[in-house]
Design a protein around this nucleic acid. Structure first.
Length: 108
DNA sequence: GGGTTGACGTGCC
DNA sequence: GGGCACGCCAACC
């Protein structure tokens, strides 16, 4: 019973340290499928069905934009969560994105 | 098996 | 610098 892509993505996402963020592309690249960044986002969409709690708010696109905030129910929720973890959000974008960026390929 | 989808990324205008 | 079009690949119907 091999883990599906979703589970593999979730496994990586839930390892993102608090106060750190990651991009879909970085996760996809870590899974040796750099072109499949869209699948990571899709896995996030399916994270609601996951048994474990997936910190999907720590996953943004490569620009550090909270592209998936509309999937959190409240548009303020994702930003609020990240801000609560010490990140700086401005116009739905992480200001200190590069500073807080967490690359699984390097740090994991 | 085939077409559609999607919380992306890159390139081009 | 912002916006649009194409590509990419796995899951879903």
């Amino acid at each position: 019973m091999e883990k599906s892509f979703f589970e593999a993505v979730w496994d990586v996402v839930e390892k993102i340290p608090t106060g750190r963020v990651c991009s879909y592309g970085a996760i996809a690249h870590y899974l040796s499928t750099p072109k499949a960044a869209r699948m990571v986002g899709w896995a996030m969409n399916a994270s609601h069905s996951a048994k474990r709690a997936i910190p999907a708010h720590r996953v943004v696109n490569r620009l550090g934009i909270l592209s998936g905030k509309q999937h959190f129910g409240q548009l303020d929720l994702m930003e609020k969560l990240l801000t609560n973890e010490g990140l700086i959000i401005e116009n739905d974008k992480i200001v200190n994105f590069e500073e807080k960026f967490w690359n699984p390929s390097i740090e994991l």
